[in-house]
Amino acid sequence: MADAAIARESTTAPMLAVRGLNAWYGESHILHGVDFDVARGEVVTLLGRNGAGKTTTLKSIMGIVPRREGSIVFEGRETIRMSSNRIAQSGIAWCPEERGIFASLDVEENLMLPPVVGEGGLPVAQIFELFPNLRERLHSPGTKLSGGEQQMLAIGRILRTGARLLLLDEPTEGLAPVIVQQIGRTIAKLKERGFTILLVEQNFRFAATVADRHYVMEHGRIIDMIPNEALGASMGKLHDYLGV
C-alpha cells in the first residue's frame, strides 16, 4: 500500500527535477545543460569519469556554485535562485566529498551542528546504532577520527536534521572495503526509512549494490540512464563510458 502510494507520487511529480542546468566556476563552464529526475524514495547515482561534472551537479543543487542557470525544482519549488541556507532549510542535505568535518569542534558538536530543518530526522540514538564508533569518540576533536569514522560522522550529522533528500558525494572514496560495506548497508537502511538519496560515485560496483538507477555524466551532460536491473546487460557500454 505504502509502496503503491510512493509509486503513484513518483509518477506524477519527481521529488527533484533538474532541467537545462548550466554552471560556471569563474570563466570555466562546467555543466552544459544537465537534465535528470529523482523520485521520492529512490537511490540514484551519478556515475562518470573525473571532471565529468558530478560534484558540480551536487553543489549546484545545494546552491554553492557561484553561477548557475537552468531549473532545479525540489518538491515543487524552484530553487535555482535560492541561497544555500534556504535550500538546506527546504529539506536537502549535503555530505561533501572532502567530508567537511570541523577540527575546532569535537565529535558531538560536529554531530549536533546542522540545524533541524524539518520533522522526521533520526534520533541521535539511532545514528549511534548505525555508527557505533561515533558514540565512543564523542569528545575527540572531529578531525582526529579515522577517515572512515569521519565519513560516518559526515553522513550521521545530516540524518538528524529531517532533510528528505541526501546528496552524498563519493562516500566510499579512499575507505577500506569493510567500511565501504558498512556504508552500503547504511544507505540500504536509509532507503528503507524513506530517505531519497542522490549519490556521486566512481565505484560502479558499489553503486550497483545500493542504487535503483544510474545516470552517466560526461563533459557536463547526462549521456545515459541505466536502471539497476539493466546494469549487467549494459556492462560493455558502461566500461566505455567510465573508461574502466
Binding site: 554553492i64 561533501p96 540545524p115 536534521t161
Partner: peptide, 8 residues
Amino acid sequence: TVVQAFGV
C-alpha cells in the same frame, strides 16, 4: 560554505 549549506 558547509555551515551555510546546513541551513545557517
